[in-house]
Amino acid sequence: MIEILQWTTLIASGAAALSRIPNLVRRKNRSIFYALALLTLAILLSIRGPYLAIDTLLGGTNVANLLLRFIIFGAIFFLALRIAAGFGDSRGVQLIRGRAGMLALGLISAVLVVCFVLMDTSGSSAGLVDVAAKSQQNALLVEYYGAAGRAYPAYVCLAILPGMLRAVRSPLPAMLRMSAALLAVGSIAIPLSLLFPLVPPGLGFLRFVVNYTAILCFVAGLALIWVASGRAGRKHGRVSAQRR
């Protein structure tokens, strides 16, 4: 079940990235392609099989996990910035790109790296499960490391959430409001991941459901915008042709 969700998300995200290639060639909003490509890579790395294969290639010290965290940071940064700019949420843009956003990114990255270095990370293990099992100290460090990894995406999502909620209630076309609603659901789900340590072990599958649903919501929300733009068709094509 979780496998299906993971691979579905991977395929959806990969397809979305591929669909951006024509615009990449045309140099139009290229950061969306990069964000989706990073996201696809991140999903790939979060699946057990590919993770073990790649990490083994990188020396088997779980560097792939650290890489995964930074890939997620990059993807969410570019994507959220575009979304906030698109929906005219200047405060959201400011919170992500401004001093507060950079401070959050720097601080969280530092915590992430420090935790990683202090851990005994030898032996590839998806989700660092085996690493945590090695010692009491490792277990604690993995906990902090995980929290730091979830903190930055949560910060960014909270930054764009008010803008999305405003867009849902705005007089925008129905499809765009639906898209904003999907993006809002994603932006709510990701901060919820901060509560993962409180989830009882029996309900561990909830972590996966929340994570991948959030990503699916983001990708679907973006795809809906592209559909809406296709529907709006000629008129908007003419305008953007003028601007180019």
Binding site: N29, A85, S170, A232
Partner: peptide
């Protein structure tokens, strides 16, 4: 108001399409 709505939509096209 219509122009503002239109502008908002255009901004979405500009940034996200």
């Amino acid at each position: 108001r219509q122009e503002q709505d239109q502008e908002q939509t255009e901004r979405i096209w500009e940034n996200l399409v």
